[in-house]
Structures are given as structure tokens and as C-alpha cells.
């Protein structure tokens, strides 16, 4: 009798385990809605100023962060950072600095967040001065030339005068892609100066990001330029977070995942006429 009881119990337990599995086979994961709830306000203990998200921006990249006719900062990144600050329960405060000042400012505890989409590289990934967030875009670097020039490919740029923003990865990649020596390239303070140098014939091509190049072509007078069809490099770019604020890094990474999933990043890129690379981010696991 005891033996019978043991056998019956074993059968009952097996059925109990198997039954839900049988039900699980009816699940369609494609219909599931993934929960991306998060604390609002997000408790952040290491902000420079309580209640404020201090963000460094150059204000010099058309489409992403630039000054509108009303004299205010605007663009896809400004909208994204403003939404991010609101979702975190913070007030955004934008500080306009040159690109050369963004990373030193993060190291000096001046800003909580910065970089409009800094390309990942070994130095930045291992920096002790700031954290790189998960990518906000695929960073496609390109060469811009005059439309009436004979340059149609990167090979055509061998031996011609090239330039770009000093210290930026875009210039470094153009130098590498065209086989120039680094000292032969003209390092300029900003994108504006690069464009001027191209217009004036001081350089024949400059390296920049696809976002900035697209915005240039769509701006007034942009029809005198063209983008070479082969990129100089394709990587990913993210924001930079103050290294004293690991809790902010977690929050920003979470929100970037959410905004990519719910289409916010795509919507903002469309709104400001920027090429959207959200789908490409999936390819690299983000």
C-alpha cells in the first residue's frame, strides 16, 4: 500500500509540473509587452546640484544642438535631454561650452552629463574621468567635399588637403581612411571653421559625422556640398556621464533603452531631419 502511495504521489507531482509547460507552449512572445517601469523621480544621490541635471553642450551641431531663431538651444539632443531630465524628476540646465571643454568639465565635476554622441574608442571606454553610456546612435563618419569638385570616393582624397575638428575622431578617421599623415591634416576649432575652410579652398575635404553633414546639406547654401558615399568609419556613439555619478549612468542607460524601444529617439531624429540609426543599433546588440 505504501509503495502504491509513493507511486501515485510521484505521478501527481509530474503532472503538476508538466501541465504549466503545456500551457506555456501556447504563449506568443511577440505579443508580450515588456515592462519598462522606472522610479519617478529617480533617486540620484551624486548630482552636482540637487534637483538639477547640468548638461554640457556645444550648441554648434545643426539638427542635434544649435541655437534657433528665438535664441534658445534646440535640436534632437536638446529635446531628448529635456525629456530625460523630466523623466528623472529633474530640471535640465544646459551649459554651452566648446567640445574641447566637455570632457575636462566632466572631470572637474562641472557637469552631470555631456557629449552629443561621443564615438566609442579605447581611450574613452577606459577613461577614469567619465562614463560612456550605451549608444544613442551608430556613429557614421563621412567626408564632406564641394559638390563641384572631382572627388567622388575616399581614394580620390589621397594627397589632397584635408581637415576637421582638432582632436575629434571624425578627423582621425578621415586621416586613416585617406592614408594621410596626421600632421598633414588641418586641425580646426570647430565644424563651422571646417566648413569655412572648405568653402575658401584651404582644404578639399573635411571629416565629420553623418548627422552634422546631413544637416549641412539641408541648410541654406548646403547645395554646394556633397557627402562621399563611403563612410570613413562606422562605430557607435553615446553620452558621457560624470564619473562620480554611477547612479546617473544606470538611469541614463535605462532611459536610452526605453527611448529606443518606444521610438522616442526615432521620432526626435525625424522631427529634426536627422538620419535615424535605431535599427542599426539592434545589429550591434543594443
Amino acid at each position: 500500500m505504501t509503495h502504491f502511495r509513493k507511486t501515485a504521489s510521484a505521478i501527481a507531482m509530474t503532472l503538476a509540473l508538466v501541465a504549466p509547460m503545456a500551457q506555456a507552449q501556447d504563449f506568443s512572445t511577440s505579443d508580450l509587452e515588456v515592462s519598462l517601469d522606472f522610479p519617478q523621480p529617480w533617486p540620484l544621490e551624486n548630482l552636482i546640484e540637487d534637483g538639477k541635471l547640468i548638461i554640457a553642450t556645444t550648441g554648434k551641431t545643426a539638427g542635434e544642438t544649435f541655437i534657433g531663431e528665438n535664441g534658445e538651444l534646440q535640436g534632437a539632443r536638446i529635446d531628448l535631454w529635456t525629456k530625460m531630465a523630466e523623466d528623472l524628476g529633474l530640471e535640465p540646465e544646459f551649459v554651452r561650452v566648446d567640445w574641447a571643454g566637455v570632457m575636462p568639465g566632466l572631470a572637474a565635476n562641472r557637469f552631470d552629463l555631456g557629449c552629443e554622441g561621443a564615438s566609442w574608442n579605447n581611450d574613452r571606454l577606459t577613461s577614469n574621468d567619465f562614463f560612456l553610456t550605451r549608444p544613442v546612435k551608430v556613429a557614421i563618419h563621412v567626408a564632406v567635399v564641394k559638390k563641384d569638385s572631382d572627388y567622388d570616393s575616399l581614394d580620390d582624397l589621397a594627397g589632397v588637403k584635408i581637415g576637421g575638428v582638432k582632436g575629434e575622431m571624425e578627423l582621425k578617421h578621415l586621416v586613416e581612411a585617406t592614408g594621410h599623415a596626421e600632421e598633414d591634416a588641418l586641425g580646426l576649432p570647430g565644424v563651422t571653421e571646417s566648413r569655412l575652410a572648405l568653402m575658401n579652398g584651404q582644404i578639399d575635404a573635411y571629416g565629420t559625422g553623418l548627422h552634422a553633414a546631413t544637416a549641412l546639406l539641408e541648410s541654406e547654401g548646403g547645395d554646394q556640398f556633397k557627402i562621399l558615399s563611403t563612410p570613413t568609419s562606422v562605430g557607435v556613439g553615446g553620452f558621457c556621464v560624470n564619473a562620480r555619478e554611477p547612479d546617473l549612468l544606470t538611469a541614463v542607460n535605462f532611459l536610452l533603452a526605453k527611448y529606443r524601444t518606444d521610438g522616442t529617439i526615432r521620432e526626435l531624429n525625424d522631427k529634426w531631419g536627422l538620419p535615424d540609426t535605431s535599427d542599426m543599433l539592434s545589429v550591434v546588440g543594443y
Binding site: K60, F66, I67, V95, D98, G101, L196, E220, G221
Partner: peptide, 23 residues
């Protein structure tokens, strides 16, 4: 001073150039 975030005249002029392409 524009290099440390003061939005003086040249900084603003540069920003206006980006927005208008009228250097």
C-alpha cells in the same frame, strides 16, 4: 571666454553661423 562657457559675442556668432550657414 567662450571656451569656458561664456556666451559672449564670438561664441554666439559661431552658433548663429551653424544655424544659418551665413559665415
Amino acid at each position: 571666454a567662450g571656451a569656458i562657457g561664456v556666451t559672449e559675442m564670438v561664441t554666439r556668432a559661431n552658433q548663429a553661423i551653424v544655424a544659418t550657414n551665413r559665415p
